[in-house]
Structures are given as C-alpha cells and as structure tokens.
Design a protein around this nucleic acid. Structure first.
Lengths: 139, 139
DNA sequence: TAAGATATGTTATACTATTACATAAACTGA
DNA sequence: TCAGTTTATGTAATAGTATAACATATCTTA
C-alpha cells in the first residue's frame, strides 16, 4: 500500500502530478496547459491528463469550470470527505484577470433543491458559474 | 427596413434560420448539428452558425448550455425585452433522456448576489446547470 | 453615390476530448 | 508462487468544438 504525504487515500503517480500542478497554478488550467507543464514528468499525450482529471473529479479534488473548458483544484479538498464529493459548486469568474473563486452557497443550493422538488427532478450535481469583475478589476 | 413576422427586432436571414432550427428542436443542439440541419438553407461552414449564435445569445434569444457545448432557444424569449437579456439562467439537464429545462429562480439569484456583495464581485451573468434525472427518467 | 458599418462566404487552423489498442503494474485467491 | 483479474499506463489516431484571417457583399446614411 503506497501512501503519499498529506492524503488519506492513494492517488496514482499521474493523479498526484496533475493535482499538484493544479494546486500550484494561480488559476484554472486547460488540459493541454497541464500536459505542457507535465512533459518533464513524462507526460506525452492528452489522455494521460484527462484520465487523471477524471479520477480527481470523481474524488472531488478537482473541479471542471465548464465555461472555460478548464480545471481548478478544489479549495475545500481537505474538508470534504474523500470519495463523497460535495455535489454543488459555485465559481466566480473574473473576466478582467481570469481569476476563479470557488464557493458554496447553502441558500442557492436549497433554492435549486426546492425547484427540483416541485418539478420532480432528482438532482445529482449542480454547478453555478457567475461571471463579472472581481474587487480588484471592478475598481 | 426588413421586418420578419412575429419579432419586434430585425434578425438577419442566418440568425432567423438558426433560431428557427433551435426552436423546432426538442432539445439542445451543437453547432455542428445546426450546421447539418441548415445545409439545405445554404449553410456551408461552422462560422456561419457561430456568428448567428453569438448574436442570438447577445439578444437573449438563445442560451449556451456550457456543460453540453450545445445551444437552446430561450423559452422566455417573448417575455424578455430584446437587447436586455436576463443575465441569469438555470438549466435542469436530464442525464437519462438528455432533455433540458430552462428556468429562473429568484431566490438562488439573490443568494448569489448576496455572496457577490460580500466579496465585492460585480456580477454580469450567472449560469446554473443542475444534472440529474427528470420525472420520467427517475421513476 | 461614396464612405463606413455590418453581414456573409470560404479556407485553413487551433483548441478540446475520446476511441482503440497494446503494455505494464497491482491485487486476489488457490 | 503463480495464474487470472483488475486497474493504471503509453501511444497513435481521430472526433468534436471553436476561431483566425481574408475576401466579398449588403445595408445605411449623409
């Protein structure tokens, strides 16, 4: 049983590399950005990145930002129990500097659940992306 | 001044064609799906579709479903004043049958606005996509 | 009509993601 | 330990989505 520092679940080498690259990044990265950053670590093909990303997303350690076709490390990775990803994420995307801030909003989630209840829709995941200007870029 | 039946603003021929194709569709369509459906109307290249879609999105007549890389006709097109798209959309995407239901939720929107206020983020648009199973597919 | 803006047509290309198949490593139970 | 199974990897080819660049045409307005 291989165990890597700081985690309570095993990630493969490629998954670790992708996760670390995303954690180090100061913003969202595309799959091909990741590929470029990981060439020195032996990555040669997009599929290596996508496979790792798929697993990391299932584990809740990485999120996909749909409107950017890009990925971010989950900022709550330490809080969420591994293997039980919190199914709702919100992202605030600044169109000025490109920064992405992840957050969760219980009220918004409950509102969606209320809608779903009334329409007999069974929610599995929810993703909200708001776009605009962050404090710095708005002023 | 050209005027087309049923609208209070002028759309170009290509924009009309794309909008009509989306309105007739029973679900979201990708840009290349639209291209295929419009070949008989003279469409030959993806850019013709994308250009029309861009304009229709600005007008609030069409929405992009980010997680599907696809587009839907806005079901509130008649209610919303043209040129002033309602900046917040919610979509319920059924993973069983692929249906997409558009809705708006004031409570969820206010919750996001509240978050934004506290974080000095100026919201320009907001997009929520929930995935799960519709009434039919869940039962 | 001339000038500027807007819309179109067309080709090529860039960016994003998956399929298919071969190889290797890890786990399981006899 | 070994065979059988599953899981992870490597690699090449291809599919799917979107835009850049440039030429042409149409509309608008003075």
């Amino acid at each position: 049983m291989k165990e890597t520092a700081g985690t309570d679940t095993t990630l493969t080498k490629n998954q670790e590399l992708v996760r670390d690259a995303l954690s180090r990044a100061d913003g969202p990265l595309g799959a091909y950005d990741l590929l470029d950053r990981l060439r020195d670590d032996g990555f040669r093909a997009p599929l290596q990145v996508y496979r790792a990303l798929d697993k990391l997303q299932v584990l809740g350690l990485v999120h996909r930002v749909e409107s950017l076709n890009a990925f971010v490390a989950c900022c709550h990775a330490d809080e969420a129990p591994r293997g039980l990803p919190h199914g709702e994420m919100c992202f605030a995307i600044c169109q000025g500097c490109g920064s992405v801030t992840e957050f969760a909003d219980e009220t918004a989630l409950r509102a969606l659940q209320h809608w779903a209840l009334g329409h007999e829709f069974r929610i599995l995941t929810a993703n909200t992306e708001i776009k605009g200007l962050c404090r710095t870029c708005a002023s």
